[in-house]
Amino acid sequence: MFSKLITWIVLSLSMLLSYQLQAQEIETVGILHAVPSKCVALNQGRTCYADVKVTVNAPSEGDYCIRESLSKKILQCWAKADTFKYELDFSSDESLSYELISKKSRDVLAVTTIEVNWVHKVKTKKRRWRLF
C-alpha cells in the first residue's frame, strides 16, 4: 500500500516536472527567439551544453546576420530573407547574448540571451563513497 502510494507520488512529481519543463519552452515569439533560453549544468563553473534553435522573424526582407554579443563573432548571415532559423551548438560556462544585426549598417536589431544556471552551487570538498 505504502509502496503504491510512493509510486503514485513519484509519477505525479515526474508529470509536474515534465509540465514545468514544457512551460519553460513555450515563450512568445519575437524578432529574435532562442529555444531553450536556459542551459542548466550540474555544477557552478562547468561548461553547459545545449542545442539551441534560433528563430528570426525580421520585420522586412533584407540581409541579416546573427552574432555573439561579446566577441562580435558572426555565426551566420542570410541574404534577402525575413524569416530564417539557425541551430546553435551552445557551450559556455556563462550566460551569452546573441544579436541580430543588419549586414550593411551593423545596427543591432534584436538581442536574445541564453542563461547558464547550475543546480549545485556548493562544490563539495569530497565525493566519498559509502558501501556499508
Partner: peptide, 10 residues
C-alpha cells in the same frame, strides 16, 4: 549517472 533536468532538479 547524474543529469540536470531543470535548474533545481537532477
Amino acid at each position: 549517472l547524474n543529469y540536470p533536468i531543470a535548474e533545481d532538479w537532477v
